[in-house]
Write a protein that binds this DNA or RNA. Sequence first.
DNA 1: TTGTAAGCGTTATCAG
DNA 2: CTGATAACGCTTACAA
Lengths: 334, 334
Amino acid sequence: MTITIKDVAKKANVSISTVSRVINKSKPVSDDIRERVEEVIKELNYEPNQIARSLVMKKTNLIGVIVPDISSFFVGEILNAIEQIAKVYNYDIILCNSYAEREQELKYLNLLMNKHVEGLVFISYKIQKEHKEFIKNAKFPVVLINRFIKEFESMSVSIDNEKATYDMTKYLIGKGSKSIALIRSGDSDDMFINDQLLGYQKALKEESVEYNRSLVYDGIFKIEKAYKLVEKMIEDDNVPDAIFATNDDAAIAAMNCLLDNGYKIPEDVQVAGFHDTQIAKLFRPGLTTIKQPIFDLGSVATRMLIKKINEDVELNESNVKIMPHELIKRESSK
Amino acid sequence: MTITIKDVAKKANVSISTVSRVINKSKPVSDDIRERVEEVIKELNYEPNQIARSLVMKKTNLIGVIVPDISSFFVGEILNAIEQIAKVYNYDIILCNSYAEREQELKYLNLLMNKHVEGLVFISYKIQKEHKEFIKNAKFPVVLINRFIKEFESMSVSIDNEKATYDMTKYLIGKGSKSIALIRSGDSDDMFINDQLLGYQKALKEESVEYNRSLVYDGIFKIEKAYKLVEKMIEDDNVPDAIFATNDDAAIAAMNCLLDNGYKIPEDVQVAGFHDTQIAKLFRPGLTTIKQPIFDLGSVATRMLIKKINEDVELNESNVKIMPHELIKRESSK
DNA sequence: TTGTAAGCGTTATCAG
DNA sequence: CTGATAACGCTTACAA
């Protein structure tokens, strides 16, 4: 039923190799034959079968993407970028949503290998041993967004997390805060997350504010969880004078909880986020936050990946790209 | 380098057909041989090549998804559902972001056909002639979310749009509004969008409020555009006493503009949205909106599609599913 | 129950 | 420049 290269060949009175050649412009074909073949192709509305092609060329033009949560602002915007750039280079995206669960991530890692993707953009809150193992041995290049693997050279795109938390912490202290809660998305044993703590601590130290471990909360990436966390602070009568969440959603949730309980922002509590997703600007009061070049994070990662796929680039230090960040001041801080 | 069915066959001292049989359990294989083969498979860490398999079986286990804007809340949540359900049935997702542009949509429609997807979930603001043509002739089933094609039986999942806008309009009038701006995402020649107008008009009529064409705005799905629109109303001193946007993002943008210009919500202007995305609840004042079962929209569509792919279902009227909606009252209305 | 061989739709090698 | 023909890795009649 579906028409193949054979049909074209027969109708054009040439061999299938010739048809293949005009399709791929892989070898010279005389003008008259070329024209004839092209005509037949049009006439028959022939489209080469990508699967057959993949089989022999070992090229699928597929890029895998594993994300922790499609419906988050941050990931949505990154996906946007990945998709856009990939399409430019004629790559398609296979999307996998891991729900930030290790099991799922590992499953997808294998699934994508099986689907013969040519590369992978991996967004994970926590890179674990098994991940590293996989990435190290993977037959295709992998680029991480907002994470590093320090044990070996992995491709990675992110901002300077230490500097970013440093900047924000310093800023909040400058505006008069003395007890700044730090709400982090990941777990403390993640290098990336660790950088955030380092920046926070460095700023405290510089400003002679004592570091208090109990002000640091980990593993909060769900809105509900962040809300509950702040609720608990209020119940315990233990509300800091600033809350710095390393993701905007959590910061918004914190603001909601504070507002719902009669606190004034920023007078009673300053609130700061991370990412500068849409909602940071939309929400009232506007959220002071670290602006990341989210789209660029995705697009740079994808370009890097595709370059690597095509071996245009060697595995060297330039495989880690640090993008600029910016402190955006809005009404949630003084 | 990569290990194939041949390697397994050789090492297990059987033919490749036998190996194939144990992999697919397609025909009986004696216990001892089966065990031997399974052992070798494990030993060699063999994984069947999906591409080769696709070629012969004409089955890719791929579902295409075309969306207008990945980074919107609504689409993100739907994608979430699609991905989740698809994975349950062992299907993967090829993601295409059309930016709501007709050209892109058509391009992707062809691309997906070329990739031999087995089905398509199509989210488009505006189904046009070319789309219909394509869908009608497509070799694979297509399910639309929130759109219908009335010309022929297409699979479709949505809410009852007429009833939803009717409910909301009636509610706003009940709360005292007389001039209700209707801000719609799509264009007026779309059937789906048209239903929204019908519901709006019906409610007005029932409540003896005169219909005023100039209060209906079309083609507003970008936040910026909605903001500008309301800004214009304010400049023209032409602010209605209620704004009903058929998507939450636009409603939030409207609220922002009103708040920024000193208007009180809901005292001066009531605002209502559509979808009940995360932000409707997060924003302050909370947004009164039509709650759609967003996740279900995606999951039902995907299940329907997969069933159709497997021919479990005939093309009949049950191919159009209407999901329930709900009016959620929050502080943006009286 | 098992093996042989044809075929899925291409590209690529090698003669001519 | 063009055409056979052998891959690519797998499934599936058809035979044995």
